[in-house]
């Protein structure tokens, strides 16, 4: 039994300790906002926050999160009010939408540590999140918009 906090709620799961957090969230807890893309931590579709830091859930054994606090896209805000979510709509970022949970979680983590990122800051931080539809130019623009509304912790 592994105990952790998921989107603010105490959560217990019965899972093998090496099972990646991604499959615990998706298959055992049936929360599918966090996406599978590669299983190797190279595409970013599964990005969630662990104690505020972005991690790749597909490459994180569930044992690692025992006692920690995990935030997924479903917990980023109530009703899409996070500045990143709002900027995503303002710039009409998504195409298919599949990678966007991971993109928004990475962007939120970036802005939590740097609320005035340069183009190269964004490139460096976001290059781990693939988008096959090609929304990169709009993601970059949306991050700059969201930056105006984010407080640095």
């Amino acid at each position: 039994m592994i105990t952790f906090t998921l989107n603010g709620k105490p959560t217990k799961v019965e899972a093998e300790p090496e099972m990646p957090l991604l499959w615990v969230i998706r298959d055992l807890l049936n929360m599918t906002g966090t996406k599978y893309g590669c299983g190797l931590g190279v595409c970013g579709a599964c990005t969630v926050h662990m104690d505020g830091q972005p991690i790749r859930a597909c490459a994180t054994p569930v044992s690692v999160i025992a006692g920690k606090s995990v935030t997924t896209i479903e917990g980023l805000s109530k009703d899409a009010s996070h500045p990143v979510q709002q900027a995503w709509a303002e710039h009409n970022v998504p195409q298919c939408g599949y990678c966007q949970s991971g993109q928004m979680m990475s962007a939120a983590a970036l802005l939590a540590s740097n609320n005035d990122p340069s183009d190269s800051d964004i490139d460096n931080y976001m290059q781990g999140n693939l988008c096959r539809c090609g929304t990169y130019p709009r993601i970059k623009a949306a991050i700059k918009t969201a930056a105006k509304f984010v407080e640095v912790k």
Binding site: D27, Q85, A89, P94, G97, Y98
Partner: peptide, 28 residues
């Protein structure tokens, strides 16, 4: 340039893709 109708679901992770289908008693 109307906003896509699925925007809110995408923003909040509520979309259902093929990989997201879940049914009671389902095998993977």
């Amino acid at each position: 340039g109307l906003t896509i109708v699925d925007m809110h679901d995408i923003q909040t992770g509520k979309t259902q893709f093929g990989q997201d289908v879940h049914m009671e008693g389902m095998l993977y």
